[in-house]
Design a protein around this nucleic acid. Structure first.
Length: 445
RNA sequence: GUGGCUAUAGUUUAAUGGUAGAACUGCAGGUUGUGGUCCUGCUAGUGAGGGUUCGAUUCCCUCUAGCCACCCCA
């Protein structure tokens, strides 16, 4: 038979057993944090209509222009012709590139405005963006997100940021900063962008080619160009904070005050913008502290912000909201790099060694009985020699081995071997569970 | 999407225009039924496809994938 060349799809990876502990660690802490703050889980489909994201993320962004995985609408077979023809939707479907739009959709679709507000939801799962993969940047990546919908009070902004910050600390990441900015309401942002363009227009020819494109396409990004020449102009550029209207200003000031009150350290970053169009007012990101010369924004651990206009854009009544998401890959990359210890894989309690055909058969029952008692029991029934079985038990660091040979079966006994000390004794088959309990630490059952 | 670097057993790596070598891992064994150290053996590889050549893992092309810098995003 011809061999098939198998390989994972670009930018999509397997998460192997030895890495699962990091994912577990991250998810456990996330769940604990979310639940302790009164969030409830929501799950939503991986496939959504393309239109859900087009307006919200921003039609001009790369995510929409070229990074969405879209599923071609099913072409109809001739045999499908019939009365359903008219009804059938031809809309393009996509793999979700992010979570917030789906949560907002679900909020409206299931009438969550009738629940006590704000509605606090969390989610975890894979997202998909077709960009060029790099370390910590996969095409299938995972986010853990929190959303608070239905409340405008700036204290919630502060609370959410504080929650995010505490979560990162729980993950034993010490060196990080919270970057925060306000990009104002849609109206003031439009005004600001105009001013920004006015400022840059006369000097356009001095900017780098990328910035010339940004000028019309994504003016806010003019502010974080890495070209030296452009950075000089940046210093004199108008700043968003100066264009916030009174309400936005008050909101932002209060967010910062509350953060001070909560003693959450943050860095005001007037250049912080976020890529998605739906953000309003408060935006923030969590950056790891990097070596000089490295750009921490590229390794952001997570980010979020307000999206007060999103729900109404979807036809819901105007409903303010704020959210935040962690990027699982970035965080895990950092945990590994910093060699942060996470609880390791579970070691089995007992290894059952069998010798000979009769004992092999009898050991089946023994193993099941022990598992019934909630011991973690493994064995290597496919192996013959006692040597290879004990070697394996040793490698797996199993504390107790039970040895069942032909002789023991006939006598109705089992040998219990302490793998650490090397001591062993014979117990009768009936007492074996009690004997094991004596030898294993209590938390095991 | 653009530019650059890279690709040898599961992993980390040697070498060569003429039989691809090692370490770790895995498997088995080192007398009769006992692991860890040690010793021995076995398994396993040139990312895929083309071309040049008597002969290609080596040179060339395409593809694929990884990494880096952009774009972008988080």
């Amino acid at each position: 038979m011809a061999k098939i060349h198998v390989q994972a799809v670009r930018g999509m990876r397997d998460i192997l057993p030895q890495d699962q502990k990091y994912w577990q660690f991250l998810e456990d802490n996330f769940l604990k944090t979310a639940k302790s703050a009164g969030f409830s889980r929501i799950s939503f489909p991986i496939v959504e209509k393309a239109s859900l994201f087009e307006r919200t993320i921003g039609e001009e962004t790369d995510i929409i222009e070229k990074e969405m995985y879209s599923l071609a609408p099913k072409t109809k077979e001739p045999s499908d012709r019939g009365k359903d023809k008219e009804k059938e939707e031809k809309e393009t479907l996509v793999l979700r590139p992010e979570g917030t739009a789906s949560v907002a959709r679900a909020y409206i679709e299931h009438g969550m405005q009738t629940l006590p507000q704000p509605v606090q939801l969390y989610y975890t799962g894979p997202m998909f963006r077709h960009d060029r993969p790099q370390k910590g940047r996969q095409r299938q990546f995972h986010q853990l997100g929190l959303e608070i919908i239905g409340e405008l009070d700036p204290i919630l902004d502060a609370q959410l940021i504080s929650l995010a910050s505490r979560l990162i600390k729980k993950l034993k990441i010490r060196d990080f900063t919270v970057q925060i900015n306000s990009i104002g309401c849609t109206k003031c942002r439009a005004k600001f962008i105009k001013k920004l363009q006015e400022y840059y227009k006369p000097i356009l020819k001095n900017l780098c080619p990328d910035c010339r494109k940004r000028y019309s396409k994504n003016p806010l990004r003019l502010l974080d160009c890495k070209e030296l020449a452009c950075q000089e102009y940046k210093a004199g550029a108008p700043q968003m904070v100066d264009y916030l209207d009174q309400e936005d200003q008050a909101h932002f000031r209060q967010v910062l005050e509350y953060l001070d009150e909560l003693e959450v350290p943050y860095e005001l970053n007037t250049y912080l913008v976020r890529g998605l169009d739906y953000y309003t007012r408060t935006v923030f990101e969590i950056w790891p502290k990097m070596e000089e010369a490295e750009d921490p924004s590229r390794f952001a651990l997570g980010g979020g912000g307000r999206y007060d206009d999103l729900i109404s854009l979807f036809g819901g009544k105007p409903t303010p909201a704020i959210g935040f998401a962690l990027g699982a890959e970035s965080i895990i990359e950092l945990l590994k790099e910093k060699e942060i210890k996470v609880a390791s894989r579970e070691i089995p309690d007992i290894f059952v060694v069998q010798l000979g055909e009769l004992a092999k058969k009898k050991s089946l029952k023994l193993i099941e009985e022990l598992r019934e008692e909630s011991f973690k029991v493994i064995s290597a029934l496919g192996k013959e020699s006692i040597k290879s079985q004990l070697r394996l038990a040793d490698k797996l660091k199993v504390p107790l081995a039970l040895i069942l040979g032909h002789k023991e079966v006939l006598d109705g006994t089992v040998i219990i071997r302490d793998m650490h000390g090397g001591m062993q004794e014979t117990a009768s088959a009936e007492n074996v569970v009690d004997e094991i309990k004596k030898r294993l630490p209590r938390e095991n059952f």
